[in-house]
């Protein structure tokens, strides 16, 4: 859980970190904190996994990775952990999860996101995944992204 001070820090940073020489000092000032105190709190939030990293979110479309396919697979439950781990280690798989099926319409329990410069490249990568899954995979599909409809990341709700 997070306390009031952590919450203020998260709210101050959810829009991003300032691009100035001493960004933490600037944020600390707006929060009425010493820079050291803010750095200490941030280190603690990192160690607890609340902050995964402080980094750039690239726009893959603008970087020429215009094709984004969510590949989905119906993998035998007995093999999901072993096979999911192998798929997750492929260098071109950016996210990989086991998720529940939604039967009867949605038989797929393994989701692996694949990016490429075009659909040909994504299909080549998808074929590599299919080869690894082999007979343990009973059905498969791919959902290409057509449009980003929203991308803001986490937003805490204002608390009254």
């Amino acid at each position: 859980m997070i306390d009031t001070k952590d919450r203020e820090i998260i709210e101050a940073l959810q829009g991003g970190l300032p691009l100035v020489p001493a960004p933490y000092a600037q944020v600390a000032e707006t929060l009425g904190l010493e820079e050291d105190a803010l750095l200490f709190r941030l280190a603690e939030l990192k160690s607890r996994g609340v902050i995964r990293r402080i980094a750039a979110a690239p726009n893959h479309y603008k970087l020429g990775m215009t094709s984004n396919g969510m590949t989905v697979w119906d993998v035998e439950d007995d093999h999901i952990t072993e096979l999911g781990t192998r798929i997750g280690q492929l260098p071109f798989v950016t996210h990989c999860y086991e998720r529940p099926r939604a039967l009867p319409d949605w038989p797929y329990n393994l989701f692996a996101m694949v990016h490429g410069k075009d659909e040909v490249e994504v299909e080549e990568k998808r074929a590599e995944i299919a080869a690894i899954l082999g007979d343990a995979c009973r059905a498969k599909d791919i959902l290409y992204s057509k449009r980003i409809l929203k991308k803001t990341g986490l937003r805490l709700k204002a608390k009254g």
Binding site: Q14, V50, I51, I54, A55, A56, A57
Partner: peptide, 8 residues
Amino acid sequence: ITRFGPFF
């Protein structure tokens, strides 16, 4: 870059 900062 769509965003630069902490990933929560």
